[in-house]
Amino acid sequence: MKSLWLFPGQGSQKAGMLTNVDPNLKQNVENWTGVKLLDTSEGYSDSQQIQLSILLLQINEVDQLKKMGWQPDLVAGHSLGVFGAAYAAGVISKEDVFKLVSLRAKLMQSSYPEGYGMGVIVGLSRQEVAELVKQVHTEENPVYLSNQNSELQNTLSGELNAIKQVLELASKQGAAKAKLLHVPNPSHSPLMANVAEQLDYEIGKLHLSNPACIYLANNNGHPVKKVADVKYDLANNLTHPVFWETMINVALEYNPQVSIEFSPGNAFTKLLKVKTDQVSNITLSEMTIDDADFLLNKWKGK
């Protein structure tokens, strides 16, 4: 039975989500990073709180599933999710990944002054959005076509005024939705090059292993089996769009029977269900690990 493990990024975090996390693991994370995880709404306005907490949730879930004997055949992480994915694929150690994400979050928090962010457009094709971006983007007024979340859902990253101009053009052209996202930096655009450079330097110092399964890369949607390619994705995915739609199309060509979405939220299971009803889905934020184990055993037996 082939399984696809999906790791969401930022967006669905909420206060109290760390309640059932292994306290020892939580303590370790706080020791390694020097960051006390508050798990509160106010706390979740800080990048390090968000990113470390989400990663903690995911790694806790991965450990539990693996202890029960489950292994992924394909892993796909969205933005921050690449780190959970890389951990699940056996590429990076627990301590290393938390320290790395801690640094990533810190760098992202301080990388951009106010006035930068992201937007989302639903209902236009990627080509159509690219045309609109071309009409607005200049070096002084930068906006980039960023994430490819689905066939008709794409994001923009850049300077807020430039983004707003593109959103307006999109609405005029018949976009079903064109609005700003609550994200304080222009993630997944060339504007994040500084952060990527520093991450790249830090990752270069770590010992990483070849993935034990197929890792779907954000930066180009390719299925990757070499550690060098995973490394590149972990360091540099912030400067490239997340080609999620392509990643999932490729994943489906490997014929997985089961998908498991790690916490928090269920956004990516929803997107997957629109594409196919041939995959059985588990969303860990909506059930206990024991329930997930039960279902996996049931489906494996079929």
């Binding site: 180009n220 949607g221 390719h222 299925p223 392509t246 060509e253």
Partner: peptide, 13 residues
Amino acid sequence: GPQSTRVSQMIAD
């Protein structure tokens, strides 16, 4: 058909 995305990628790279 069943491998069209990967085929497209492999030709491109």
